[in-house]
Structures are given as C-alpha cells and as structure tokens.
C-alpha cells in the first residue's frame, strides 16, 4: 500500500499505477524509480497510467522529473495508456509533459523504447501489420 512495485523487464523498468496517487506515494515512486534506473542501468522506463483518472500539475511534474532524471542516466521514459479524458484535460490545463514519450499501450511503449535505444525487438518479427513510426533510420 505504501509503495508501487517496479518490475524489471529485460532492459526496461515497468511500473503500473493502479490507483490515483496521493502525493507521498508519487514522490516515493519518483525516488524508487530513479534509484532503480541507476542500480540496474535500465535503458527505459515504462509507466502505465491506464488506470489513472486524474493527472494534475503535481502528478505531471512527477512524470516530468522521472523522465529528466532518467535521461541524465541514459534512460528514456514512456508514459503509456493515458485515458483520452486525461489527455484532453492536460492540454487545456496547459501542462506539457516535457521529455516524456507517450504510447497507447505497454506493447507499443516497448516498441518505442526499443527503437529509441536501437535494439531490434525480436519478439516483434511475426507481427508485421503495425510498423513502428520511425523504424527506417
């Protein structure tokens, strides 16, 4: 209840946020993620917010901090599954998640990360219908 679990998946860290975070929990997550990136040398962080119904400026700032701290340690951050209502609201609020990539779901987020760090996703070979956006570089 006091911590959000962080899973290591290959070169990435995956966090699934299941509840609307109260501030202390969000700050703990920020610290845990940053120290885990540095301990594991992870190349990417995936944050699944598909169950999150509210992102206010505080939460937005936490996501931005995670991304910029991770980048310093050479890891990219992808926020996945943002609900459309949340996305619309963020735009109107005026909050841009700087340095944070977004993807529709965890799978697409992984593709994006693999592309960013230049590793070919071998699991993706039998799924040729959806080409990643920028795979021809």
């Amino acid at each position: 209840m006091d911590r959000i679990p962080i899973l290591k998946m290959g070169p990435f860290l995956l966090v699934t946020i299941q509840v609307d975070l109260y501030d202390r929990l969000a700050l703990t997550l920020e610290n845990d993620l940053i120290s885990m990136v540095s301990q594991t040398g992870a190349k990417g962080v995936l944050i699944d917010i598909s169950a999150v119904t509210i992102v206010d400026s505080f939460m937005g700032r936490i996501l931005g901090n995670i991304a910029s701290m991770s980048r310093i340690m050479d890891a990219e951050t992808v926020v996945v599954g943002m609900q459309p209502a949340v996305a619309i609201t963020l735009v109107e609020l005026g909050l841009t998640l700087q340095g944070v990539y977004t993807a529709l779901d965890v799978e697409k987020g992984m593709d994006l990360l693999y592309n960013k760090i230049g590793i070919i996703d071998v699991l993706e070979e039998d799924d040729q219908e959806e080409e990643p956006d920028d795979c021809n570089d």
């Binding site: 119904t53 509210i54 992102v55 206010d56 400026s57 505080f58 609900q83 459309p84 209502a85 949340v86 619309i88 609201t89 109107e92 609020l93």
Partner: peptide
Amino acid sequence: SLVNQTKLITAASE
C-alpha cells in the same frame, strides 16, 4: 460526461 468530470476534478485538485 467523463471528459467534463475529469476537467472539473483536475481543476478542483489544483
């Protein structure tokens, strides 16, 4: 509606 709820709650949170 969900979008309006989200807007209101986000404003309230701020």
